[in-house]
């Protein structure tokens, strides 16, 4: 067992972790944050995507031991109280959700993307969510939702 300090969704934790424990296991099994999904465990489906120091990463391929002193944002930390984040709002409004299993990962990829590039093209979005497999939507509506979210966020910034 080794001890690490991490900040998850703004809250600080001191945790005893196993050397081979993944960030995904910590989030789901220790912190009860099951919004981050396990889809493959091989880093290919992206259902486990979270933001680590603002970047989209695959929590199934991240040893939690390596996140010591780092900041993690999961889908549960995106809302402001009862208020949805504009990306979440946009997913709801654009029918971008079907089974919803890939949704948290997609939203977290989108979050990192929009932090970096507030005005992405359709192509930028498709490239940045390449790691997020979705078997239901065919990607069209999620891409639309992310582009709409970018507009929303830009609009807020204008104000």
């Amino acid at each position: 067992m080794l001890y690490i300090n991490i900040k998850v969704n703004g809250k600080e934790y001191e945790l005893g972790v196993k050397p081979y424990e993944t960030l995904l296991e910590t989030l789901r099994d220790k912190l009860g944050l099951t919004g981050t999904k396990l889809g493959c465990g091989d880093g290919e489906c992206g259902a486990c995507t979270v933001n680590l120091n603002g970047k989209a990463v695959l929590s199934c391929l991240t040893l939690v031991a390596q996140t010591d002193e780092k900041e993690i944002l999961t889908i549960e930390g995106l809302q402001n109280g009862a208020e949805l984040h504009p990306i979440q709002e946009s997913f709801v409004e654009n029918s971008a959700i079907q089974c919803g299993y890939c949704t948290p990962g997609l939203v977290m990829s989108a979050k990192a993307l929009l932090e970096e590039n507030g005005d992405p093209t359709d192509e930028n979005v498709r490239e940045k969510i390449a790691n997020n497999l979705c078997r239901c939507t065919g990607y069209e509506q999620p891409v639309r939702a992310i582009l709409e979210a970018a507009k929303k966020i830009r609009g807020e910034n204008d104000r």
Binding site: Y20, G43, L58, C60, L61, L63, A65, Q66
Partner: peptide, 23 residues
């Protein structure tokens, strides 16, 4: 040695007792 971990955790080698992070 483990850096990004994106390879190690896919293959999960059985013959490893210690992981060495280089951060």
């Amino acid at each position: 040695v483990v850096a990004g971990g994106t390879e190690l955790l896919v293959h999960k080698p059985l013959d490893v007792d210690c992981l060495v992070g280089l951060s």
